[in-house]
Design a binder for these strands. Structure first.
Lengths: 204, 204
DNA sequence: CTGGACTTACTAACCGATTAGTCAAAAGAC
DNA sequence: GTCTTTTGACTAATCGGTTAGTAAGTCCAG
């Protein structure tokens, strides 16, 4: 009646999520079929349909699965000093994805489907709002502590997310993770100019 | 035997490109089929295959068609004064697309396919290089004229393109063109801080 | 502790719909 | 009359989803 610590998770739902992840990485979203997910799962396609009524249901669940993981990594940033905290958050948003370029591709594919799949749009929007809230909060915190200039925190948060989204898109299209590094520098410059007005930023 | 000024262009190739454009706007890239393009064209699917061997050939040609048009709009900017020229270029990149949100969606869909369709990737990359070159040139021009600070023009160009790409991605995912306006402001702030260092920018 | 009832987790076979692409024949154009 | 263009009918493959049936485990009554 309680959680036995199974190592490789015999929970079918979770294993299907993992199978979906693998299939997505290998074939991309456009070629993500129930058949391929089933192949990764090691079972029949009907087995997938037993757990998820439709493909859309599965994909919506998968998006929850993946976005929850992403939110968790954001939560790992525990530093409270505004300047350092903002730095670490930008690292999570811009340097961490460099290790998972194929996931970056799949995510952009799914993002581009948002206009046609409301279930996708809602989830991405919800996630964006949360990350934006986290950014706005740390900026406001910095302002009230006097380490940041008195700026429009909401706008600065949106600006930083624009840089993040731009970097991710460019990393996919240009088939190279250097846009993420470039954007990390751009974000630092923007923060230095707008938030740390007057301060000497770490210019090279 | 040369260019009669026909108004609605009886050139089949060009009309198929236009039909593809309409089909893409209406159904999105993921649901862009030969059948739908043929429906817009007003002919049979086999007629499409007569002009373009495969769907990929057609799509590659279409990407050329659409990116060439985009380059033309960039070329419309004739102002030579660096500061004003950069402003107008950013307008072309960030405010002009607000009138064609559905094209923005389709373009993002095609961009996300770049990793799987080399023909797409090459064309987007070529286009990006050109726009980046135009930006770098105007920045370098501004530096040599003394109106811009002595910065790494290549990096600033990449930064601005990151903001542009981020805004476009966000406009699609968030189903709203305001990210483009936000990004226009962000770009202005970035230019003001990095290029016009010290100058009083038009802050509100 | 045994035996029926019910649940979970699947499989194999199949369905209608849709896809890109082919081909011989017909229809125009000059 | 010939060359370009277009059509209708077609194929082979793949898609998401449905169906009936099965094996194994759990639950519970007596």
């Amino acid at each position: 009646m309680d959680d036995p610590p199974e190592r490789s998770s015999s929970d079918p739902d979770e294993e299907i999520m993992r199978a979906t992840y693998r299939a997505l990485r290998e074939h991309g979203y456009a070629d993500l079929t129930i058949k391929r997910i089933a192949a990764e799962y090691g079972k029949s396609t009907a087995a997938i349909h037993y757990h998820y009524e439709t493909k859309d249901d599965l994909l919506a669940a998968f998006l929850d699965f993946i976005l929850d993981q992403f939110v968790e990594t954001i939560h790992e940033v525990e530093t409270t000093a505004p300047e350092e905290r903002l730095d670490l958050l930008l690292d999570k948003l811009l340097v961490a994805p460099q290790d998972h370029p194929d996931l970056l591709i799949a995510m952009l594919e799914m993002r581009s489907q948002a206009p046609y799949k409301p279930a996708f749009g809602e989830r991405f929007q919800q996630n964006e709002e949360y990350v934006r809230y986290v950014l706005r909060t740390v900026i406001d915190h910095g302002i009230s502590e006097g380490v940041f200039a008195d700026v429009d925190a909401e706008h600065v948060a949106r600006s930083l997310l624009t840089i993040v989204d731009g970097a991710r898109t460019r990393a996919v299209v240009l088939d190279d993770t250097t846009p993420l590094e470039t954007a990390r520098r751009t974000a630092a410059e923007y923060v230095g100019a707008v938030l740390l007005d007057g301060r000497p930023s770490s210019t090279d």
